[in-house]
Structure formats: structure tokens, C-alpha cells
């Protein structure tokens, strides 16, 4: 508990225009090295929460501190992996991966080093000259991940990055993601619809409720890293999946505000 929080939400609220609150009274924090999964019914503001951290959207109330600063000021510390791979179709894999550093004005030599490093991490070095349309869905997502990692972020925001992939690919990518985390070490918020994915990846699961979006429960995941395919058949893992599913079910069933 001694390490200061890298990301801290204090009573954060968010609404769009005059609309209803998308997020209300959100208190949440992540310490360095945390991998926080956000799960909840659709409309609970999971993605909005990530966008607030990224500075893509302003708060409507409360306070959000990212690396001791406001989200906008801390933008250099973070990277975002979107639901879609969002690759620029006219650029090759290598050029796509270099986009963030190029936008930040990094010299070519530095860009090349970063590109080689991250393509190695996602095992796509041999596809560096391919165009996105030549890649499979899983490969595109790995390029997207590589692009995010190219800026050596301290905070990684992942918005359902593997949601569109088949289960096999998804499990492989989950294992890869944890492997990369061992090697690079970042703090992450991971939005997902999959309880299994949340348990497998995260050190802590935040279950959110909707209308307005708020934190319903936080569940620690005490499974030791590194986690492997074996983890998925372990007793503790399956128990946790069951426990989180129950909590999630209770949130989805609740019509009014859930009891604390």
C-alpha cells in the first residue's frame, strides 16, 4: 500500500452535454503494476472511463489524477489500444507502428529501434512490410498493440481489444499480453465483456453498474503471475470466474441502484 497511486479517480462524474450521468461518484485507483479489469453491463461507462484517463474526453465533476498530473498533461505516459485495430490502411505494418513516435517528432533512428523492439514483442517482425489488409484480425490487433507499446507507455489503456476475435486467438493474445507485460511492465486498465478474460489477465477486477455508471464491487485476483494456459484449468481460477460471474449477474439483474 506504500506505493503512490499512478491513477486515481476521486468522485469522478461524467455526462455528455445535458444528458444523464454516464459516470457518477467513481472512486478508483491503480498502483504501479496493477492490471485492472473493468467489467459491467453495456452502458456502464467502462469505455468512457478509459477515455477520461486518456484525456480524450473531459471530466464533468470530481478529480482524476494520472501520474500526479491532469490526464491531458500525462498523455505522454500512456497509450491506448482501441476496440478496432485502427491501423492506417495506406501504411505498412512497420510504418503504422511508428506513427505515435513520428507524431511526437522522434528521430528516425529512435523510431526504427522502437519498431524493431515492439514487432519482436508481438512476433510480427517478418510481416513488417505487409499492409493491414493482408493481415488476419489477430495480427492486426497485435500490430495495434505493438503501436501502443512503441511509446514505452507507463499506463496502457485497453478498450476491449480482443472482443472481435475468436476465442482461440483471444486466449493466445491474452497469454502474449501477459508475457509482454513481464518484459515491459506497465500499469493497465482493461475493459472487457468476458469474465474469463478479466480473471485471467487482471490483478483486480472492477465490476461496474449502469444508470449511472459507477463502481459496484472490486474483486482482487490473487492468482500468481506468470499465468499460463494451465492457469485456466486451476481450481482458484474457476472459483474466481464463478464468483465474478455471480457479482456481474447481480448487477445486471438489479433494476435500481445496487446496494453497496
Amino acid at each position: 500500500m506504500s506505493a503512490p497511486n499512478l491513477v486515481e479517480f476521486r468522485d469522478v462524474a461524467k455526462c455528455f452535454g445535458d444528458g444523464p450521468a454516464v459516470l457518477s461518484g467513481v472512486n478508483l485507483s491503480a498502483r504501479p503494476g496493477d492490471l485492472v479489469a473493468l467489467i459491467g453491463p453495456s452502458g456502464c461507462g467502462k469505455s468512457t472511463l478509459l477515455r477520461l484517463v486518456a484525456g480524450l474526453s473531459p471530466l464533468s465533476g470530481g478529480e482524476l489524477i494520472v501520474d500526479g498530473r491532469s490526464p491531458g498533461e500525462a498523455a505522454g505516459e500512456l497509450a491506448f489500444v482501441f476496440q478496432e485495430a485502427n491501423l492506417l490502411p495506406w501504411l505498412t505494418v512497420a510504418q503504422n507502428v511508428e506513427v505515435p513516435l513520428r507524431l511526437r517528432g522522434a528521430p528516425a533512428a529512435e523510431r526504427a529501434r522502437a519498431r524493431e523492439r515492439v514487432l519482436e514483442l508481438v512476433r510480427l517482425a517478418e510481416r513488417a512490410d505487409a499492409y493491414p489488409r493482408q493481415l488476419s484480425g489477430g495480427q492486426k490487433m497485435r500490430v495495434s498493440l505493438a503501436r501502443a507499446l512503441s511509446v514505452s507507455p507507463r499506463i496502457l489503456l485497453l478498450d476491449e481489444p480482443f472482443g472481435a476475435l475468436d476465442e482461440m486467438t483471444r486466449e493466445h493474445l491474452n497469454e502474449e499480453l501477459l508475457g509482454i507485460r513481464e518484459a515491459t511492465g506497465w500499469t493497465a486498465f482493461f475493459v472487457t465483456h468476458s469474465v474469463a478474460e478479466a480473471v485471467f489477465l487482471s490483478s483486480r477486477i472492477v465490476v461496474m453498474a449502469a444508470n449511472p455508471g459507477r463502481v459496484h464491487a472490486e474483486i482482487n485476483v490473487p492468482l500468481a503471475y506468470p499465468r499460463t494456459a494451465e492457469t485456466r484449468v486451476s481450481r482458484e481460477y474457476l472459483d474466481l470466474v464463478a464468483q465474478v460471474s455471480r457479482v456481474l449477474r447481480s448487477v445486471e439483474d438489479a433494476t435500481g441502484p445496487a446496494a453497496p
Partner: peptide, 22 residues
């Protein structure tokens, strides 16, 4: 594509970079 615009925004693209690169 709105998502690509956000990607550029996230990495602090300047207006000319938005125009020329995206």
C-alpha cells in the same frame, strides 16, 4: 475515420500532421 482522428489526438498530433499524415 473518427477512431483514427482520436488516435492522432491521443498521440498529440499537430494540425499539419493531422492533415498531411491522416
Amino acid at each position: 475515420d473518427r477512431h483514427l482522428v482520436e488516435l492522432f489526438q491521443l498521440y498529440g498530433a499537430r494540425p499539419w500532421q493531422n492533415l498531411v499524415l491522416l
